[in-house]
């Protein structure tokens, strides 16, 4: 194994490590002996199997997923578009600087409470997911465009490379690594913030509402099971999105 691949392996999740931590969790739960304080991993899995068989489980996932993913894609689209405008027009960048900085610095909870006044609870997670993702996309893509090799752009000018090819083969290849890292950060964040918004806004039939109900009735197995669901969806959404993005990036490298 060469040094690069061993370096890549570092930091990845290994089976033995997961098993060890599950063992620790099981041990602590057994010692405590109170499900209300800490439910065992086995009880969580059993509860999850029960939930999977209900239609509410799937509709809740569909509800939250469509809204959080919707917010993510909307923020991605606008983040990319606005970064292009900002690169092109300095006044536009200056115009956006205060709101972008404000969004970055404001706690999610403040936004949720503030926006609940104007936005219906069912659309809250779309907006909150959008707010969390937009500054990351905008800032990273703008940085990516700025980092485009000026010498390659000069080469394209001398050879009169058409705009379409310039964008696809010069700009995109330089911007995509920035875009990828933004997606990697923003995808997880959109789920965390989106679910937090649902827990506060309580839109009917959302994962956030299920979590809130579990907390309200001290149903710890439910709370853990739903948390596990959120983690799995968030991780898989990120993985699938990044795999598709990597494939697209690879395709872009061929003329």
């Amino acid at each position: 194994m060469n040094s690069t691949s061993s370096a890549k392996k570092r930091g990845t999740i290994r089976v033995w490590s997961v098993v060890l931590w599950l063992g620790v969790w099981q041990l602590v739960a057994t010692i405590l002996g109170q499900d209300i304080l800490l439910v065992s991993p086995l009880a969580v899995i059993l509860r999850l199997f029960e939930l999977v068989r209900t239609s509410l489980f799937w509709t809740s996932i569909g509800y939250s997923f469509s809204r959080i993913a919707g917010g993510f894609f909307l923020a991605t689209l606008l983040g990319v578009l606005f970064s292009i405008f900002s690169y092109r027009y300095r006044w536009f960048e200056e115009l956006l600087a205060p709101p972008v900085q404000t969004i970055k610095a404001t706690p999610v909870a403040s936004f949720v409470i503030l926006t609940l006044v104007w936005i219906a609870p069912q659309n809250l997670s779309v907006f909150i997911s959008f707010l969390m993702v937009f500054p990351i996309m905008y800032t990273n893509v703008l940085m990516g465009i700025r980092s485009t090799d000026k010498k390659l752009l000069e080469m394209a000018t001398v050879f009169r490379v058409p705009a379409y090819r310039r964008i696809r083969y010069i700009y995109l290849s330089q911007v995509l690594p920035f875009f990828r890292s933004a997606c990697s950060v923003a995808l997880g964040l959109s789920w965390k913030a989106g679910i937090a918004a649902e827990v506060i806004g309580l839109p009917q039939g959302s994962i956030g509402e299920m979590l809130y109900q579990a907390k309200l009735y001290l149903d710890t197995p439910d709370m853990f099971a739903w948390t596990l669901v959120i983690i799995v969806i968030s991780v898989w959404f990120e993985k699938i999105f990044l795999i598709l993005l990597d494939k697209a990036m690879l395709k872009m490298e061929h003329l």
């Binding site: 000069e154 080469m155 001398v158 050879f159 083969y169 003329l255």
Partner: peptide, 24 residues
């Protein structure tokens, strides 16, 4: 119409040798 070999190669690193030529 100008063509050039620059002092630095100015190739797109991710593109193949073939694609670098095809680009222009």
């Amino acid at each position: 119409r100008i063509s050039a070999v620059f002092q630095e190669d100015r190739l797109c690193n991710n593109l193949s040798a073939y694609s670098n030529v095809k680009l222009v």
